[in-house]
Amino acid sequence: MFKPDLYSKINNEARRDTRDFIEEYSNEIGQMSGRCLDIGSGPCDVVTDFLLPKLNPKSTVVCSDISKPMLDYAKEKYGANDRLSFLQLDIESPTLAEDLVEQFDHVTSFYCLHWCEDMRQAFENIFELLRPGGSGFLTFVSDFPCMDAYKVLAAMPRYQRYMTDADRFIPVFQHAEHPRENLKKLLREVGFEISHCSRREISNIYDTPNDFGRVMAAVNPFIHRMPAQLQREYEVDLGIEATKNGIFFNKDNNGGYNILCRHHMFVVYLKKPSIN
């Protein structure tokens, strides 16, 4: 989240999943016109490569992110595109800027909202951002067992001081008994009409724990807090601990193996009711 160049290089799995989700809903996305807001755009490669080509050609996208380094990177790389603009935005903020209320025809977000601790506030803000009749297409993690590694590492003395808020970064629905039903209930309470809400299993294969550790480190909220000499140690330990929730297979005569890691994603298409 704080190393956009690194994240851009290793987020292949998230890019693949998002490409597939956008392709699946290409008809609905193709009807999105006017002013769109993308929440958690990161380095903006997904918006540029997959979302923008599917949107109505006359639409524009405001790329938003809570991370200034991500936005600065996106502006430098994609700022010349006149269909894009950039906004630093905390979607959990209890004080949404008045000049943003009902200013967007559509909202999208990919692999982002699971970072929100106050999910109700996030969805209330999305509701407020949308104009009446506006729609939203959102994908985010329902549960990712590998993230339970955060709690294990947070208990280790050498990492403890940097991870005092470890629980805050584990997905809200991680251990929910009925995650899809809970999400739909929340969305209806906020005021949305739900056109689609599903929970999909996603699988990724990594060659070694170190490979997976590098992916986890690129989106890790703690590693940037640590001194440089501790970061590499943490990355290795994160990979080892996180892959304990994976499946090991294809062990060769040299002791090599692959790791299958599974998680679940919410895929949501919703609408804000029109004013009668």
Rank of each mutant, 00 (worst) to 15 (best):
K9M: 01
N254Y: 13
A149Q: 01
D20L: 15
Q174G: 08
D211A: 04
L113Q: 04
S26K: 14
D65Y: 00
D5C: 00
Q229F: 11
F144L: 14
E92G: 09
A217D: 01
D72R: 09
G30Q: 06
K75R: 11
G255R: 10
G246N: 08
I240L: 12
T243G: 02
M226Q: 03
Q160T: 13
Q31T: 13
L71C: 09
Q103L: 08
L37C: 13
N182Q: 13
L84G: 06
R158M: 15
I39C: 09
D99T: 10
T18N: 10
M147H: 14
K251N: 09
F137V: 03
N81H: 07
I66C: 02
N250I: 08
Y111H: 09
V215H: 00
K3C: 00
E177R: 12
N81L: 04
P4K: 03
I194D: 07
R131A: 09
G136R: 04
R15G: 05
K68W: 14
G40I: 07
A242R: 11
K244I: 05
E181S: 10
S198T: 14
L270W: 03
F212A: 00
D165K: 14
I259P: 00
K9Y: 01
N254R: 13
I247W: 12
R16W: 11
L260S: 13
N258W: 14
I247R: 14
I247Q: 08
E177D: 14
E13S: 12
I29G: 10
S142F: 05
A122H: 02
